[in-house]
Design a protein around this nucleic acid. Sequence first.
DNA 1: CGACACTTTGAAGACGATCAACGCCGGTGG
DNA 2: CCACCGGCGTTGATCGTCTTCAAAGTGTCG
Lengths: 244, 244
Amino acid sequence: MLWVNKTPAVFLFEGLEEKEKEALLKGGKIKNFSSQEYIYRHGEPADYFYIVSQGTIKLFRETPDGYALTTDILIAGNTAGEIEILESVPLYQSSAMAVGAVSMLQFSRHWLKDAAKKSSQFALNLLAYVAQQARQSEIEVEQQATMSAGQLLACFLQRVCVLHEFDPKGFELPYSKSLIASRLGIELETFSRTWARLKDHGIKVNGAQVAFVNPPMLEEYVCDQCSITHDCPTHQAFQSKVSR
Amino acid sequence: MLWVNKTPAVFLFEGLEEKEKEALLKGGKIKNFSSQEYIYRHGEPADYFYIVSQGTIKLFRETPDGYALTTDILIAGNTAGEIEILESVPLYQSSAMAVGAVSMLQFSRHWLKDAAKKSSQFALNLLAYVAQQARQSEIEVEQQATMSAGQLLACFLQRVCVLHEFDPKGFELPYSKSLIASRLGIELETFSRTWARLKDHGIKVNGAQVAFVNPPMLEEYVCDQCSITHDCPTHQAFQSKVSR
DNA sequence: CGACACTTTGAAGACGATCAACGCCGGTGG
DNA sequence: CCACCGGCGTTGATCGTCTTCAAAGTGTCG
């Protein structure tokens, strides 16, 4: 089984006693958002920590001139706001918007800090969690710097497949193509062309249908970082064949 | 004065009592390294946490085929290894090598975790510190995705100027050009050409000499993220003029 | 002086962005 | 029911940027 680099939020409560865990979870409120609704906006005080329970959220930043870059796509089990809350200037550094109907657990900023203060176990979990995010971003820098659009897209599809627990032999894209393009930092046109060319290289696509031709040996499109990156979702199962 | 996005390690001890601080610092050993010496290697168990006290360290990863990418350049006050130690798989995710003679404070892996366990203040400091690193990486992803080589280089020079407390009106590059090129993820040739073209746009260069023509208004080369990114080193002082 | 590391310069090519046009589809309103 | 429209995606042509390969220049050190 593939190893997934995006630990879900449950990890934060690992090693805590049932009582503690329950007490902590009681500090959260369920909040529902409808499609296109903002959960928070870039620049606002980071007052809340969120755990996604249902639906999809996109995190993005925009420049005054209207250019938007999607920095992350969150699904059930992911979290938002923890980094900002923990930083010395607690302002949201991106905007969060619901993509479709969304349900989240909302906790106050103080809840997070207090939990870390009171339980050293929670603090260590949170440290590991945040460290993981830092690592993930570092990997992304590396990938952006060294991989082509095709490699980025292929890696993304593999990650999607794993995180959503889809069947590698065939599944439907859970997001719009524009969203993915924005997430990968490429233009929609480039995405479209790249998408078409995946066919020739081991990933069959048809509309929004994706199928890995040889799930156990997706060599052609495995990023060349895989052989050295413990966090790469493909690393545990595949060997890279891509040379530079 | 510019705001610097790379908090030095002293921040970790902020808010602690003098006694605690001293006790903690006693857990560290001074280690010296000569030029080109490895401090640690990618894939080794992350047994030590380091604080740089003198010299320059480069962090980098390499693929089996010999391609190397510099992920960070550390100077006095910076730290290494904390992310890896805190992660659930404590292996170094990059190699660290001395660039010139280096002196570091070395602490054991357990020192770091114990300090976080025993002092909730230290734990919160560490959380803020790691969160900051995560943010920094996120910003880098964004910059890699949206900025040209010229913008990247100009931003880098500004950061260098600030972090080293150089005179913006003229200073000498503290690293080799190849190192910087690798750090920015561009080829040496591209770097060289870009370097020459900085002249036309408000940064005078001559060999390894750098001078900002109009320090208070480096508009041309300020990345367009600046207007929205609180962590951008240029954000506090400059307004962006770059459009896309 | 020669070896070697580091950097520069030139020419060609790959890749992605941009601009423009069009196809497809679902919804709305006449 | 059909015409129009807007969101979304595709396709083509062109352009600029960065990489790649090749060669030569600069400096230091023995």
